[in-house]
């Protein structure tokens, strides 16, 4: 007996053979987000005590990179419906029609599994477990749950972007300490002012897509106040590695000066009113430089010497 009765018509549609290029699949990995993840993970790896073979360090970074990219692909798979409504994301591979949703899902799941398993097999279990949790948190907690249900979406969801330094640290030590948690907190409190500045000048996009970003739900004035409050928390956290003895004078100078820059811009954002959004654009751009400088100087000031010594050993 056949499960398909003879003469029955096939009503489904056969997908056109894919025209997706390698570049389209690379775009699914969100290369720009990935570069920040790689960098912060490298800092976590460099400042960690103990030794790690350079090849093992490379493997750890590769797995963290691929894991971050995989969660980006799964995010694009789930968000394809709202991505096509926003000008910032409408040209992504799925809404652009170059990659089928199913292809992106398979790609993301395969890379997620590979990155976690390889990290566990070749580096250590704790870093693999943290990477698996990060992917789960970004895809399930942030993308599937929080993003469309609460204006606090990027506050809680921001944790996913803050885990990489902890994974880098765990790759070296196989354990956890307060220092990588401090790095986590810096990125965690950096995310709201960074992303809400963007959300203010892209508010129409988020409105159209029905994403309940803070400026859409609570209004622009509340968001500007929240940006200032989070920046007031962020700046002391940025200086904390020096105050707690994890970094030297160079880091102290850079964190104070750039922290002041963040505060000045956050005050300007607070005092500015739409249709003017220049201060928001300035804060968004400067916040990227701020985080990069903090972590780069921390690595040079604290970890660079140790990393070079380890590579030479």
């Amino acid at each position: 007996m056949s499960l398909i009765s003879e003469g029955a018509e096939f009503n489904g549609t056969i997908a056109e053979p894919s025209l997706a290029t390698v570049g389209d699949y690379l775009a699914l990995l969100k290369p720009r987000v990935m570069s920040l993840v790689v960098f912060t993970a490298l800092v976590g790896l460099a400042v960690a005590p103990g030794s790690i073979h350079p090849v093992t360090a490379f493997t750890a970074l590769l797995c963290i990179t691929v894991g971050a990219g995989a969660s980006g692909a799964l995010n694009m798979w789930f968000d394809a419906d709202i991505d096509r409504l926003m000008t910032r994301t409408a040209r992504r591979p799925i809404p652009g029609g170059r990659v089928q949703p199913g292809e992106a899902l398979a790609f993301g799941l395969t890379l997620s599994a590979f990155s976690v398993v390889v990290l566990g097999l070749l580096v250590n279990i704790l870093s693999a477990a943290l990477l698996a949790f990060t992917i789960f948190f970004y895809v399930v907690v942030y993308t599937m749950w929080l993003k469309r249900s609460t204006p606090q979406n990027i506050v809680i969801g921001g944790a996913a972007g803050a885990f990489p330094p902890m994974i880098g640290w765990a790759a070296v030590t196989g354990s956890m300490a307060f220092e990588p948690i401090l790095l986590f907190l810096i990125i965690f409190f950096w995310t709201p002012p960074h992303f809400w500045a963007l959300a203010i000048y892209r508010m129409e996009d988020f409105k159209r897509a029905g994403v309940p970003m803070l400026p859409v739900v609570k209004g622009e004035a509340t968001t500007r106040l929240q940006i200032l409050l989070y920046t007031l928390l962020l700046v002391p956290l940025g200086i904390a590695p020096y105050l707690l003895g994890y970094a030297g004078l160079l880091y102290a100078v850079v964190s104070v000066v750039t922290g002041l820059g963040m505060l000045i811009l956050a005050v300007q954002v607070y005092r500015e009113r739409l249709p003017s959004d220049q201060a928001c654009r300035h804060l968004f751009a400067f916040s990227i430089l701020y985080l990069f400088l903090l972590f780069a100087v921390l690595m040079v000031d604290r970890g660079w010497g140790g990393l070079i010594a380890r590579l030479a050993a």
């Binding site: 056969i14 053979p17 894919s18 025209l19 997706a20 290029t21 390698v22 699949y25």
Partner: peptide, 14 residues
């Protein structure tokens, strides 16, 4: 299914 040249090129690169 007969692939076009563009589809063949994309498949080869993948």
């Amino acid at each position: 299914i007969v692939l076009t040249e563009a589809q063949k090129r994309a498949r080869r690169s993948r």
